[in-house]
Design a protein around this nucleic acid. Sequence first.
DNA 1: ACCTATTCTTGATCCAGATCAAATGGCAGA
DNA 2: TCTGCCATTTGATCTGGATCAAGAATAGGT
Lengths: 253, 253
Amino acid sequence: MSQFKVISLESIRVACKNCTLASLCLPMGLSPEDVERLDEIVKRARPLHRGDYLFREGDRFRALYVVKTGSVKTFAPSSEGGEQVLGFHLPGEIIGLDAIDKDVHACSAKVLETSAICEIPFTRLEDLTATTPSLQHQMYRLLSKEIGQDTDMLLLLGKKNAEERLAAFLLSLSQRLHKRGLSPSDFYLSMSRHEIGNYLGLAVETVSRLFTRFQEDGLMCVDRKHIQLLDLPALESLVGGSGQSRRQQQQQT
Amino acid sequence: MSQFKVISLESIRVACKNCTLASLCLPMGLSPEDVERLDEIVKRARPLHRGDYLFREGDRFRALYVVKTGSVKTFAPSSEGGEQVLGFHLPGEIIGLDAIDKDVHACSAKVLETSAICEIPFTRLEDLTATTPSLQHQMYRLLSKEIGQDTDMLLLLGKKNAEERLAAFLLSLSQRLHKRGLSPSDFYLSMSRHEIGNYLGLAVETVSRLFTRFQEDGLMCVDRKHIQLLDLPALESLVGGSGQSRRQQQQQT
DNA sequence: ACCTATTCTTGATCCAGATCAAATGGCAGA
DNA sequence: TCTGCCATTTGATCTGGATCAAGAATAGGT
């Protein structure tokens, strides 16, 4: 029995060098030898299930996590009991970078559907990057990229209306899935309308109404959690801003 | 004349090891020898004036910038001509981390008042961190901290109302100035109401009205750009959320 | 000191999206 | 298959803060 378990774990043993997501993950641009060394510290890719936590707010920071398959949401408690969804993480995306500073997780990470997650002990990674300049550079880029993404989100929450936000959200998913070799126009939403609304700073009802409207306008086809984007260009022009909707605030400060 | 200039530049030559901001900046926690090495690559702390740019959106990324005195705002163009203020940067704070990933600045940085800025060529810094584990760790923490701050901002824009946003903004300034040895309750705002509103996702008029209201409520004293916070605890309880204002959306997704 | 442009303040009105309310539809568990 | 709970949708109403519209206070330039 315990032997079975070992075998089972071995069978799903991570192998960065064979991972189809390598080009999106840390190994990107590393030499084969460097990937080999990285491979040795990556701990496991055990399957987790909907509702499982990778870590909780307040947990000591130990490792970074990479989604191999499935999806994860991160969220932080807001004042007075509610929560703010901080992000949805798809295959190839790294979770936990925000905890390096304080050595404690300030948010929780919860698995949205059955997922395989790689775990990278941070101390060991740090040691490795100290002797592998290309990996160090990769880490800097990764951290920097995260900042850039947060910036995009600030722009979205600060300047865009409901319609633009949902369109941007759908396009973001589309683009990220596409990079992972999946269909950019046909996918499942592993998160609830509630979570989407929370993430985008909108009420559930608004999200629901927008899905309906986008469908009526022929932009997409919605069936429960199954989404088909029928008119990417139109969605892109929606995000661009203006379109025919209300005038935006033109602040030049 | 050119000799004068050289002397002048020399006189303001950065010396991390003597900098009063060292504990907030990169040298934090470095050994004297490491600081010495860092010192050698920091380029200058030339004085800049209101309206000067450290860099503009689209510029090639070359260096990180640290505010020594004064203040800087960073902002990105939003769709349709407006701009989104991304942050205000006070002494000891580092600017440009978001550009490492793409090697191009996605935002612009503009000086708000006469300021002294240190410039740290990134390539040289990166080389240095590769041979100085403590500095590498410092860099990771720095990048991570930036992500954490963006996260806080997402929470603010996604979940807080106008009153809470402005209170949070004032307290943030207060706390940051305090860390720099300045008064936490008496300071000047180097940015306009417009810029504050833009940053917080509010209209100028709303910011102005809130300043008036906070003053009427005895929370603070506003005279043009001169601010005195009279009741820090009250401001903190405002940020906390609830208070007596409208109920918040309690989303547990 | 004077003039002009800009920033800030204050008041009136409007509206996107939140909130409230209720019906419908899925799905997990027995 | 049935039951009950939760997610989603749809409709009606409400409201915080945006927008519109003037003044008032400042700062900068000459």
